[in-house]
Design a protein around this nucleic acid. Structure first.
Ligand code: ZN
Ligand code: ZN
Ligand code: ZN
Ligand code: ZN
Lengths: 139, 139
DNA sequence: CACCTTTTTGACAATGATTATCATTTGCTT
DNA sequence: AAGCAAATGATAATCATTGTCAAAAAGGTG
């Protein structure tokens, strides 16, 4: 019984299983196109549109986290903490990321909303930097 | 002496002056295309590419703030506080926004970097909600 | 002002990530 | 096995943003 992760999608297909396996294999944030390339490189025949659709569906169910890089492209990676709301500290160079929880920021964010009379306040917080490895390689 | 704001660009042109005036006329975050439309509507003959270039140049000098909305489009508005680093609380409906300073968040963000061994850490924090007016209109 | 050099403009084409189409295939239930 | 709804994928379409480049304008100089 090779453990194929449980999806949150109506039907399991060869393609979806492949995406789920791929997601398990890396801790990095990659774009839909990069995931597609990776899947192809590892022998999975799968269409680009399917990769886009699957990642988006998984993002909606919370199985994967989606962020936007500086260029505006959307990056995905499996979520390592679906129980609590969190943010990320991602490496601009290689995509490696860690999930961070900040009770303080959450309170700060919601507090700001009330102060200015805004309702339904949401926040978008993403930290980027160079991970230890990439810091060593570069300057 | 109609006060035309001082640019941070090599040469002052009719188009740039028009963009600067337009920026002064609204507190809302609008996309390059929306600014272009607004300029045209107010009688300024100006090319779309020029609006893009001008807003980008102004964003680099810090004269305008640029953020990305949920759809990934870039929105601009004149910066009301060029002296200090800040973030925004923007209305998802109409673009109205206020600038917010948070010494607390800044420290939190930089602290996270050290904790996980990331260097050159940068942060992206944007709050969105519904302003008082839009909250009244909608639900 | 007339001239010169550099920057800017803008109509238009090109880019590129993402989305829409839609005929074909497939998962799953009966 | 049959039937139906969901999923796939090759392809075209979308659309914000960027690139091109000849023509126009800015600013300095004498
Ligand atoms: Zn997560
Ligand atoms: Zn790295
Ligand atoms: Zn500002
Ligand atoms: Zn509003």
């Amino acid at each position: 019984m090779s453990d194929a992760p449980q999806p949150a999608l109506p039907r399991m297909t060869r393609q979806r299983a492949a995406v789920l396996v791929a997601l398990e294999s890396s801790e990095d944030f990659l774009s839909a196109q990069q995931w597609h390339e990776s899947l192809r490189d590892h022998g999975s025949a799968i269409g680009l549109a399917t990769v886009y659709r699957t990642l988006q569906a998984l993002a909606e169910t919370g199985e994967v986290d989606a962020v936007r890089d500086a260029a505006g492209e959307v990056l995905y990676r499996r979520c390592g903490n679906r129980t609590r709301h969190h943010h990320h500290l991602r490496c601009r160079e290689c995509g490696a990321a860690v999930e961070i929880e900040g009770p303080g920021v959450e309170e700060w964010a919601s507090g700001i909303g009330e102060r200015y009379g805004y309702s339904h306040v949401e926040h978008m917080i993403e930290l980027t930097g160079l991970c230890r490895r990439c810091t060593t390689k570069e300057g």
